[in-house]
Design a protein around this nucleic acid. Structure first.
Lengths: 383, 383
DNA sequence: TCCATTTGTTAGGCAACTTGCTTATTGAAT
DNA sequence: ATTCAATAAGCAAGTTGCCTAACAAATGGA
């Protein structure tokens, strides 16, 4: 009922420990939490009893008594992440800090929510067993879904990308199979958070991720929070007026190696010297060489992307735009789209490539699971 | 250095009191703060000693002992607000809760930052003296400026609207004249916050305010926070690709009764039956009657506005868009622009008129001053 | 008049931190 | 080897900020 949870000292300490990659000392925790050493001592004792912290040796080399080093042991819990895409299924296992200890992917076998979820559960199970976390309790599964998440946090709509046209509950099958907390979010939102967590947008609190692949979509982060929109449609830049509804519902399907609409357009043009290009790299190479239909196509695509970026800037003015997706994750395109953008608006953003490529949504799902697990570990004490 | 200020009980109580319009009892404060009665008792005692709370009678009518009623007295402090516009200068005096006790406006006499600031100081002084707050200490002045605020919080750029082309410090003259804290923000941002505080967007945490007047600009609020953008250019929708840079720097000059670009366009068209329209109302009336150049102009303007709204929706998907400004604050335009928007995107927002009209930025400046004053009253105790 | 009810006030207590002190180690200087 | 300065570890008492419990005071209605 009362508003503020007022994170206790143990929670603060755990929070700091989960951000660390190396073991740390109690005096370090004291200064970084702003608490006194006795308080840290008590907090560490509590956390040790709960198995969330372990002493792992002594610090040496400095004058004075050597401090005990502590870390969150791998046995404290495992996280799982699943990225459900139209052509690829990715899973990962991580420790509570979000450090990956196992990752696998395979082509999507059959379309449709139930089939893909069954495949994902199998793949996740085998990846978990193959990892060194097989015996560790699985705390949370984060799932990246290609559609709009309803307010119940379980049901996904408009996942046309995987031929799931009816609303489908992607959470319960995982929860039943692994008897764990399952948390879902949209793939573009997760990709955006992943870029901020471990990708190209580290240290940025307001930016946009533009994914160009089968369609075009954007994930927008404002002051560290993903913009979702009233209808879950924030970032649906395929609907921007200059384009109308030409490329619409599948706009979020940005993680597909096949099905790139730019390649599709290319193959339906005539006038190629030899065969039409079959890869994005080939198309860009031929465009750079001045080959006629290639150069025109690339220039048109860059203009479209520049127009989308300019529109995003006119509305939210991000400092940085991260480009990703099968088409977008390309230096040549970024350079050209960047100079076109600069001609359109007086306050252009910095354009950078994704730091994570097509693993962005998966990494985002790991982050989601890590956040959720942390929150639950904190709520254990107060609730 | 340490992060959380962890609002003390007195701060919480003050916060609740500042949101109340009527005096309240201590038991009410206890339940609404989630604190016990003894704690409230102590907090009220502290606040009374600081002159921030006063007993103002007894509650009666209910069974049981009658409770003492408390409120923040007017003597606790005064706030001032200034809205610097290209054609009008507005000032207001309010109590700490933001309740207006005096308001005046007059046409801007001469352009340029220094002249307008001098005029504003005069007008503010006379308004303060004429109000019943003349003897009350002035805590904070909130100023709405027609330009981009630099990171120092004092210097304003691009105030071309008032013929101030060089960066100018709008804060120091007020601070010197009244020996008080002065806080500035952009007029569109303040108008947006005002709509949320006391206008059409009450209870909404994510929405956009689109101002159509001399130009077109937008203020965007995401989860209760105004989006500013990396260059202070968030909401500069005049730069959206379909329009190019046709209407640019003066886009934020939305509060001007004169200088409406739609009227300007109208007067430069030929083919009017009689004189061209001189007011927006006249133009819309003649358009509704089917008069030729009027109907075309209005339809074009509505299409432009719908396109801007659709672009905003494709990027941030707000639930509601508030329309304001000399042209935008008009039912006929809102109805037409609304139906055009619905044809452009599948997740249209609700369009509503401003609840505050051309006083929005001034009300926003009052809000800004009230927030700043509250923060300082809180920091007094902890710092 | 008495009573149920609600407010006002005091007293005591507890949780979560703090500061200040003593003790235990450690690397380097003598 | 011994000593010293520096740092960590651990203990004791004090402070803060809130709570619950209990009771006194005031009020409308039976």
């Amino acid at each position: 009922m009362t508003a503020a949870a007022h994170a206790s000292s143990a929670d603060q300490v755990l929070d700091v420990l989960l951000h660390q990659t190396e073991p740390v000392t109690r005096p370090f925790l004291a200064t970084s939490c702003g608490l006194s050493r006795p308080t840290i001592f008590a907090a560490i004792q509590q956390l040790e009893q709960r198995g969330l912290v372990q002493a792992v040796g002594q610090q040496s080399g400095t004058p004075g008594r050597s401090a005990t080093l502590y870390e969150v042991p791998e046995g404290a819990g495992a996280l799982a992440a699943v990225d459900i895409g139209g052509s690829n299924l990715r899973v990962a296992i991580a420790d509570l800090r979000g450090q990956l200890v196992g990752e696998q992917h395979e082509p999507t076998a059959r379309p449709g929510g139930p089939a893909i979820v069954a495949q994902a559960i199998e793949l996740l199970r085998s990846t978990l067993l193959a990892s060194r976390m097989a015996a560790v309790p699985l705390r949370t599964i984060g799932v990246s879904v290609p559609g709009v998440l309803e307010h119940d946090g379980r049901t996904v709509r408009y996942a046309s990308n995987i031929d799931q046209f009816e609303p489908f509950d992607f959470a319960t099958p995982f929860a039943d199979a692994f008897d764990t907390v399952v948390i879902l979010d949209n793939n573009v939102n997760l990709a955006a958070m992943a870029e901020r967590w471990r990708g190209a947008a580290r240290e940025l609190s307001t930016f946009a991720v533009v994914a160009v692949g089968a369609g075009i979509g954007a994930g927008i982060v404002h002051e560290g929070r993903v913009m979702r929109g009233a209808h879950g449609a924030a970032g649906e830049v395929a609907f921007l007026p200059p384009f109308g509804t030409r490329r619409k519902v599948d706009a979020r399907a940005h993680d597909e190696a096949g099905g790139l609409s730019l390649l599709h357009d290319a193959q339906s043009r005539s006038g190629w010297r030899g065969d039409p290009p079959t890869t994005v790299e080939d198309l860009f190479r031929r465009a750079a060489a001045g080959e006629r239909p290639a150069a025109t196509l690339v220039e048109e695509e860059c203009a479209r992307i520049a127009s989308v970026i300019a529109s995003i800037c006119a509305v939210i003015d991000p400092e940085t735009v991260v480009l990703t997706g099968g088409v977008g994750d390309n230096d040549q395109l970024i350079a050209r789209a960047g100079s076109l953008t600069e001609a359109m608006i007086p306050f252009p953003p910095t354009l950078i490539r994704s730091g994570l490529g097509d693993r962005a949504s998966l990494i985002g799902a790991v982050h989601l699971a890590a956040q959720s697990a942390k929150q639950e570990l904190v709520e254990d004490t107060s609730g």
